[in-house]
Design a protein around this nucleic acid. Structure first.
Lengths: 215, 215
DNA sequence: GTCTATAAAAGGATAGAC
DNA sequence: GTCTATCCTTTTATAGAC
């Protein structure tokens, strides 16, 4: 996530906007904020982009392009089991929460709920991001072969993994409690175990963790 | 959701803000928007609230107070089976999507991701909303008694229902396709069925529905 | 409690020299 | 492609009469 000032202007703008949109939200980030942090002048930004909205589109494209190299590749390093890969992916989001005292949110999910204008190009760019993510998970499920019951709706199950990630991040962020994230992921795990016909794991309910729990 | 102009000023402001914040988002709604739609003058709003943020707090309190009478009571009318009640609740959100061509979003979830300032009072008001919702579902799970396996983490499972709702609404909204919502809910249903030890339902994957499918 | 008018700042975007 | 200066609109909030 380093964004050395040595990057070409346009990319510096996009990187900076990614950072600010994800930390402050789209509406709450002013063009001036982006300009200042990217150390770029107004004229340059408007040379590359007609306006803030098109900068957003570039940001969404950048996220999509980053899924493989920035998310999947590191998440799956050393993980070969296809179902473990699903949970390794979720683990990356957990790390995002852990590193930020649970103020992290999935940037795509946040934008998906923040953007209220119809604006089909923006909406479609968001949808493409979700779709790429879901397809990656679907690939894992396909690779899991007959470990999942015959006739399993793999696409639906892959979407459900995204659903779980988004909902779990949302609650963990809202409660500022990573145990929320863990509990939802544990439920998803149980679901997978049941689908695979595995016996229950640790049967004890993850105890009602309170924020700074004792060490 | 009728908000007759006959309501007292303060409540008219809160109702109007609920509507606008949910349809346009918090940042994208200006105080002037609220004033205009509520037919209230600037001086009156600032008589009741120090500022927009406190109006938001009032809105969040109103949502919380509305959970029982506006959400649970209608959702559970004529539904007695505790687990069916869980899905009847989800059905209400589906209706929200269906009525709005999938532009609906859970107002609490949207605010939870849109608000990026730390602002603990706002965060806590959001958390209370989630908590009340989760507790209602947890009540259903408790009522389901031994239909769920011994040792089931009912709190975690109730949170997982919220996770599913939020994630499913987010995707349906983004793709403008209610089938997304249905697929995630179908996965949750399958999870419950497995927990209850029921045989699989309709084993056919809900086919990859495309928006306006043929009639 | 409500009204009108207005302040004061921040917002997105543009102009035109270099 | 980049720079500075600036325009115009919207925004939140206040003042003070009624």
């Amino acid at each position: 996530m380093a964004k050395p000032s040595t990057l070409p202007t346009r990319e510096r703008l996009v990187m900076t906007a990614m950072d600010l949109f994800s930390r402050k939200g789209y509406e709450s980030t002013s063009v001036a904020d982006v300009l200042q942090q990217a150390k770029v002048n107004s004229g340059s930004l408007y040379h590359y982009f007609p306006g803030k909205r098109e900068l957003l589109l570039a940001v969404l494209d950048a996220y999509q392009g980053g899924i493989e190299p920035m998310l999947l590749t590191p998440a799956w390093k050393g993980v070969t089991d296809p179902i473990e890969r699903v949970f390794a992916l979720l683990e990356r989001y957990r790390a995002g929460l852990a590193m930020t005292e649970c103020s992290y949110a999935c940037p795509i999910g946040s934008l998906a709920l923040e953007i209220h204008e119809p604006d089909p190009p923006v909406r479609k760019a968001l949808a493409r991001n979700f779709e790429a993510w879901v397809r990656a998970v679907e690939g894992c499920l396909d690779a899991a072969g007959d470990r999942l019951p015959r006739g399993t709706d793999r696409r639906g199950l892959a979407e459900f993994v995204l659903t779980t990630m988004e909902g779990a991040v949302m609650q963990a962020r809202t409660h500022r409690d990573i145990a929320c994230f863990d509990r939802s992921v544990a439920q998803l795990r149980r679901y997978f175990d049941l689908l695979e016909g595995r016996p229950p794991r640790a049967s004890r309910p993850p105890r009602p963790t309170r924020k700074g729990a004792r060490p």
